[in-house]
Nucleic acid binder design. Structure first.
Lengths: 212, 212
DNA sequence: TTGCATCCTGACCGTATGGTCAGCTTTCAG
DNA sequence: CTGAAAGCTGACCATACGGTCAGGATGCAA
């Protein structure tokens, strides 16, 4: 058991423990929901005694809040693709790529987000009414401009956004169902690529923005 | 308080109470998740003492199982539209209509289903590996035939199905988010119609199956 | 080396929850 | 009318969970 546990600096300790706890919490909250999650389970997964969790996060609610806020950041960051784009083909393609990458690499986060929203967003309500609304309105404006410039068909921008969110997040939130229908195996690299291509193709064609 | 509680027949009592419990349970499970749901809460909502719940459903798990199975039935019934159709335009339109109607009228059920799948389908795994798989394979066959007959573009049938599920269920599962972005108001009749039309239009155009 | 702030944790506590049960009331077949 | 089956329920129990705390260990600045 010759651990290479060389003495850590205080800063590092704090950072690493918080990181471990948040990671474990994300997984447990994703798998069991807020109500089903246990501080004990999270502690075990993080490899720390339960009391240590309460040293870093006073309450279960506070820990949950941190997890959810983390996820919200990531969610919003996927937006950048949208802004830099010159047209729907670039913009929506990049956004689908980004969101599918999140679904693949960060499925637990996606599930926690979904769970939070499904339960009425008790924690995120403020963010949804401010940040998310602003983000959405901005993107709606961009899409509207694309329509005005004749770069795509006149599709309702909001419903288009919902469609993008739904189709991409589905691969994380309903990943278990997809795996089951895939013979119990998780999607291969190729299948993920096919999924992305299919979504892009159907949506881009569907809004009349298919490239030449 | 002159209740018109005329004496009930045993059968009726059983049926009505089970129905009330299942309805209340569906709502509470949807709002709080399995772990967050309380037998007490369900009992209160159903207007019955908690002990009475255990008379009809021995355990919380059993009650949950009943709720989930109910939902699965409804989910599968929306499939009929698909079979009777002669082509993708009819079939997919009808399926979208049916699933959107479920999302609108039965959002709690949809949420419980989503929650169940997100948590790894502890209850539904068997159904998913048998009934759901068969249903899906059948629909994949139908779509493949449509493609062979040149009625739509060669889109991967599975990913198309996932897209249909995702986009329609999104309006139930993420209803709170949609409402928030809609100024805190639930969607109007007109908005629901627009949502449906948008989805149909984008997907049918996207798979090259737009009617003349 | 010393003193202090940070970090850690086993043991403990109050409460909420799922579940039980004894005994009551109501329905209804015979 | 009667007795048994079905339906009902307040009171109770064991457990599990979130959270606390006293006191020990550890890093670190001076």
């Amino acid at each position: 058991m010759a651990e290479t546990t060389r003495p850590m600096r205080r800063q590092d300790i704090r950072r690493e423990n918080e990181k471990a706890i948040l990671l474990a919490a994300e997984k447990v909250f994703a798998e069991a929901g807020f109500g089903g999650a246990t501080m004990q389970l999270i502690a075990d997964l993080a490899g720390l005694p339960k009391a240590n969790l309460h040293y870093y996060f006073a309450t279960k609610e506070e820990l949950y809040r941190s997890v959810v806020q983390n996820i919200f950041e990531i969610w919003l960051q996927a937006a950048n693709c949208f802004d830099a784009a010159r047209g729907p083909v670039d913009g929506i393609s990049a956004y689908i790529d980004a969101k599918m990458e999140i679904s693949r690499r960060h499925p637990d986060g996606s599930k926690v987000w979904a769970s939070e929203v499904m339960h009425g967003a008790p924690v995120l309500q403020d963010y949804m009414e401010s940040t998310l609304r602003e983000w959405t309105d901005g993107r709606v404006e961009i899409i509207r401009r694309w329509i005005d410039e004749g770069k795509m068909d006149p599709v309702d921008p909001r419903h288009l956004l919902y469609m993008l969110w739904a189709t991409t997040q589905h691969y994380a939130d309903f990943g278990h169902q997809i795996e089951t229908l895939n013979g119990g195996k998780s999607l291969s690299d190729r299948q993920w690529r096919e999924a992305k291509e299919n979504i892009k193709r159907v949506i881009l064609t569907g809004i009349g923005a298919q490239p030449a």
